[in-house]
Design a protein around this nucleic acid. Structure first.
Lengths: 232, 232
DNA sequence: CGACAGATTGACGAAAGTCAATTACGGTGG
DNA sequence: CCACCGTAATTGACTTTCGTCAATCTGTCG
């Protein structure tokens, strides 16, 4: 049967570049996988490397040093594409932060299909360019910002992305639940868990935010936060 | 006349995806520009936004904060592509570190041409994916490494890229001239000029490197440097 | 209700940043 | 070819921020 016709992200994922009959062709090569929160996606499939579309849930991409230091290098939402087509293997781990559904393809199948479907490649190119822009802005954050600036940026960024359960973007919202624990926030911002905790507390004391529960954030003074985040 | 037939990077730049007659079509839309070291590339052309191929020289991509803090987010070598096709404007400045030649195209011309030449888009996609990988590894460096680790990585990285004047990759070499001053090294690694100077001096004292002149580096103990750089 | 992981708080240390002074390189002109 | 100048790099003294280690607290879930 055809998963694609009922796929909730088919209009936003790269598949949206394709006509209906092409989609179902691609669909035949794809496999649906369920991941529980914390589970790591294994890139070797039964007989080959994989790439995937995220259908539902939030996942992190991370790399680490031999002594355990970890850096999160990407956060992935529904409709995003993950993995490394064309040759190389991904150099980072992919771990589900929430329960998640992904639609996987063997790299080689996908590569072949993509090469013969320019619209698909074009969509993938646009996404990759956007992701590169985002990642480069992140370099500025990691290289040149203080802990408070990093956190303010992070909270503002999250308020724009985590609006609805399906992560569709509807403009910023002032209250939201983070899909991250403190350690993960630290791994995103290049800080320690203690520094995250302290600066978050500063914001609370300054009346900029409220933290009614571990993962809940409420922005009380957006302008104030933006002041700390600093104009780029 | 046709620049492309004599272009030194035509076999390595994205143009290499095209047949000879297609190249000269693209070539007709391109303009040759000469940049002197220090000059910033202006993205607004006479009537539109630009993208470009680097023919010769080394350029930096950088972003900065309102108070002057700067982060270099990319270093670009001959045959590399720069600029942001498809929609958005580049969010960073491009500055020549050495005298340089670039071949510019109006964004809209390029976009239209690319859309009708899948092989070109494919090449661009592969490059963008590779650049994204590189940038993500850089996140780990900025977020989680100490000053010494950053510098060791940087030097090893440079020794693999700066082999020959044309930057063709021929394997690592132990002596090379950096195209960067200390401030630029600092802006790449998210450090201050003073810290760069001090840690570089440590390496000198430890007999890992020699610095016979301002921009010259000689690696004396590659294994030692790799030990500091740490396994990923 | 209790236990445990996750988060916070505190005291302290270390790494990198800041500010200022000094030195050295590299290019210019005599 | 050498002396001089200006920029870039180095060095030193000091401060600040963040990290480390350890103790305590709290929310969540069985």
């Amino acid at each position: 049967m055809d998963h694609c016709s009922t796929c909730v992200v088919r209009n936003r994922a790269i598949c949206s570049a394709l006509e209906m009959d092409e989609i179902s062709l691609l669909g035949k090569m794809g496999r649906h996988h369920k991941l529980v929160a914390g589970q790591t996606l294994i890139w070797e499939g039964e007989d080959s490397l994989l790439v995937a579309n995220v259908i539902d849930g939030i996942l992190k991409l991370s790399t680490s040093l031999s002594d355990g230091r970890e850096q999160i290098v990407g956060v992935v939402y529904p409709s995003d594409f993950i993995g490394r087509p064309f040759g190389t293997r991904t150099q980072h781990n992919v771990t589900a932060l929430t329960d998640a559904h992904v639609c996987t393809f063997s790299s080689s199948d996908f590569d072949r299909f993509a090469q013969s479907h320019p619209e698909l490649e074009h969509k993938l190119l646009e996404r990759t360019l956007a992701e590169l822009d985002r990642t480069r802005r992140w370099l500025l954050l990691l290289g040149r910002m203080t802990a408070s600036e990093k956190l303010a940026h992070f909270l503002l960024d999250m308020s724009q992305r985590l609006v609805r359960p399906d992560c569709a973007n509807d403009g910023p919202v002032d209250g939201f639940d983070l899909p991250f624990g403190r350690q993960q926030i630290a791994d995103i911002l290049g800080l320690t868990i203690e520094t995250v905790s302290r600066r978050l507390n500063d914001f609370k004391v300054q009346g900029l935010i409220a933290v009614p529960s571990r993962r809940r954030i409420e922005i009380l003074d957006r302008d104030g936060l933006e002041g700390i985040a600093e104009a780029a």
